[in-house]
Design a protein around this nucleic acid. Sequence first.
DNA 1: CAGGATCCGTTTCGATACTG
DNA 2: CAGTATCGAAACGGATCCTG
Lengths: 129, 129
Amino acid sequence: MLGDRWSLLILRDMMLRGARTYNELLACPERIATNILASRLRSLVENGIIVARPDPIDRRRQTYLLTAKGIDLAPVMAELVLWAARHERTGNQGLVRQLEQDKQRMIADVRQRWAAENAARSMHEPSRR
Amino acid sequence: MLGDRWSLLILRDMMLRGARTYNELLACPERIATNILASRLRSLVENGIIVARPDPIDRRRQTYLLTAKGIDLAPVMAELVLWAARHERTGNQGLVRQLEQDKQRMIADVRQRWAAENAARSMHEPSRR
DNA sequence: CAGGATCCGTTTCGATACTG
DNA sequence: CAGTATCGAAACGGATCCTG
């Protein structure tokens, strides 16, 4: 389900860089193609890792948000980033050292940030009103 | 580098089930094809995650061993298995609960088990870490 | 028999062009 | 802006063949 080249990179951009829209995700340094991004997003939605919602401010825009299942991937992502940083030359040794000491906090941050946003949009959801 | 469908599954079988030979890896439940297994093993070797050595007992046999870089993936694997177990039904809830309490020990076990085996061949390798 | 390599049909990926 | 259509390239998967 995550066994492809892009899904984890998309989630990394959502978690670590706060990307939420198609455009922000397209701008990732690895240059994903538009059709691939669309197809990966569809697959992530189908697998319940993210959800697509219209932007509450600009209705024409879609925002992609992590679900609880997606947020639970934060520890995996943290370990993966640490591993890659240790063994590849990714340049950003700063992030590494910070993560190293501060992994728990980073995971908590992801959790809290997305939990907050989910709460914010739950008022717009028909299911809860 | 790990962005393909099989590499992580191979590493899972090596770490969690102790698979070391071509045959043991072929027997994984996901039914990998022989050519794909060979090609993934080659790629893992090229990327310094595993090494191939002739079995010290049966010379016809190859054994595949984790390198330090590969062993460092244990935390990633632990988190990934935990995540999958929480959100898919993989059946083995036993392993899950055990891992949940005992993640650090499991990682240490992987490390120690493979470190011991590496020591046996360490004369041929530039040591790392 | 273990550990592949080769051939070949099928599926998926990826770059570019295009559309509502 | 957020995708879809197209089409060639790469990866997968199965069967078979090769080598020690």
